[in-house]
C-alpha cells in the first residue's frame, strides 16, 4: 500500500504511523459531559468502505495527514495535511511517470 504524502510523494505504508479515526471531534477540554467523552474515546463507525483517517508520515517529513481510505480495497482517494483544509499548498516536484 502506498500513501502519497503531499510533501514527499508516494511512499510505502511502512513509513507511516496510523493515528486513528479522522471522524472524531474532541469535546471542549472543559466539558464534563461524560457521554460526549465516552463517544470521543470509544465510539467508532468501523465502516466497510470509505473511511476518514489520520496518519503521520513518521518515517519521512513527520507531518500529520488526513487520509481517505477504502477499508475494503485499501484504495486511497485523498490525502491532505491534517492542519489544512482543501487542496494541499505544498506539492512534490514532478515525480516522473508514476504519481
Amino acid at each position: 500500500m502506498l500513501i502519497t504524502c503531499p510533501y514527499c510523494g508516494p511512499r510505502d505504508v511502512s513509513e507511516f504511523a496510523y493515528q486513528g479515526d479522522g471522524n472524531r471531534t474532541r469535546p471542549d477540554p472543559a466539558s464534563t459531559d461524560s457521554e460526549a467523552w465516552n463517544a470521543y474515546v470509544y465510539d467508532r463507525l468501523n465502516p466497510a468502505g470509505i473511511h476518514n483517517e489520520i496518519w503521520q508520515h513518521a518515517g519521512g517529513c513527520r507531518v500529520h495527514l488526513a487520509v481517505v481510505r477504502d477499508t475494503l480495497t485499501h484504495e486511497i482517494s485523498s490525502v491532505r495535511f491534517a492542519r489544512e483544509h482543501g487542496t494541499p499548498t505544498h506539492s512534490r516536484r514532478n515525480h516522473g511517470a508514476k504519481a
Binding site: C8, G9, R11, D12, S14, E15, G59, G60, C61, R62, R93, N94, H95, G96, K98
Partner: peptide, 24 residues
C-alpha cells in the same frame, strides 16, 4: 529505501526524508 532514486524523480540538489528499518 522504498524511494525512486532515478534522476527524473530525484533531481540533483534536492532532498528527502525516509527510513530504513527505523533508521531515519
Amino acid at each position: 529505501f522504498a524511494v525512486d532514486f532515478s534522476l527524473p524523480a530525484f533531481s540533483v540538489g534536492s532532498g528527502i526524508s525516509t527510513t530504513h528499518h527505523d533508521v531515519f
